Amino acid sequence: MTSDAHEGLRRAIAECFPSAAWQRRIVHLERNACSLLGSKRRRKAAGKIMQAVFAESEPASVRAAYHAATDAIGGFSGEAAELLGEAEADALAYLDFPAEHRRRIRTNNAQERTNREIKRRTRAAQVLPSMEPMIRPVGAVMAEADEDWSVRRCMATMDALETPLPPEPPIDDETRSRAERLVLVAMETAGIGPKAA
């Protein structure tokens, strides 16, 4: 399940889907970390750093870059680094799935798009006298979403979930060094060098 870090949502997911993995939405984690930084320059740098981390595709590279990003952002704010450290398992949960699923697991854009369409269609009616008239527009949106996912074959690789992933290689010095360079480049792109941080 992918959602925001809202405690009520997390509790409901754990109760209703006890064996489901939970993925924290990356964009919200980025916003939460950036909100703890004082200056606009630091917020911009932290955003660039986090975007660079999640642009990586190999799990070991993502994990190494996440650690390097946490350290770099820790130079801006200990509170932001603490948030990122605590959120690591939830933010990187998508890496435990096959590569072809990771992009869809990392965000809940499809769910949000569907919710926006439901709001748009039910808002047009303004007042619905009972549940019956509401079922039609909501059911139509859900049917369209189902058809869209079926046609695009978004879930065609479900068989991949039954095959265990090979063990993830440990983070070696080369991967760690590459991750640190990635973070430095992101900081420079944002106009903050390592000494200016």
Rank of each mutant, 00 (worst) to 15 (best):
L29E: 03
Q111H: 07
V62N: 03
S177E: 14
R42L: 00
A33N: 02
E144T: 08
A125M: 09
R24F: 11
A65H: 00
A65Y: 03
A81M: 10
M158N: 13
I118D: 03
Q111D: 00
I118L: 02
Q126W: 13
R106M: 12
A125K: 04
T163L: 05
V27P: 02
R136A: 06
L92C: 13
C34Q: 10
E30T: 15
I118Q: 05
Q23H: 05
S177K: 15
F76H: 07
R103I: 08
G8E: 00
A156V: 07
R104H: 14
T122N: 11
R116Y: 13
E188N: 14
W149F: 04
M142S: 09
A196R: 15
A125R: 06
V27E: 10
V62M: 03
N32D: 15
E117A: 02
Y66A: 00
P164S: 01
M131N: 13
R121S: 10
A46L: 05
A20M: 12
I26F: 15
L37G: 06
R63Y: 05
V62W: 10
A145L: 10
V27R: 13
N109P: 05
W22M: 08
E86A: 12
M1C: 15
M187E: 07
F17C: 15
Q51N: 04
V183C: 12
S19C: 11
G193Y: 09
Q111K: 07
I26Y: 13
V185G: 05
I105M: 12
P59L: 08
A5Y: 12
A190I: 02
E147W: 04
V141S: 00
W22E: 06
M158Q: 14
L182A: 03
R104Q: 06
C16F: 14
A21Q: 09
V138A: 01
I105E: 04
Q111M: 14
F54Y: 05
R102S: 08
M134A: 14
I171E: 04
R104N: 10
L182D: 03
A60C: 04
L37H: 00
E86W: 12
Y94W: 13
S39V: 07
R25A: 03
T114F: 07
A190C: 09
A5C: 13
I135T: 11
I135F: 09
R103M: 03
R106K: 14
L95D: 08
R31D: 01
Y66W: 12
R41I: 02
P59Y: 08
S177A: 15
N115M: 13
P166A: 14
E147I: 09
A68R: 03
A89L: 07
P98A: 01
G191D: 10
R41E: 10
P133L: 07
P167M: 04
A69Q: 02
A52P: 00
P167L: 11
T175C: 13
E144Q: 12
M158W: 14
E79S: 11
K40R: 09
L29Q: 00
F76Q: 08
I135P: 00
L165T: 00
S19F: 11
P137Q: 03
T2F: 10
G47W: 07
A45K: 05
D71K: 14
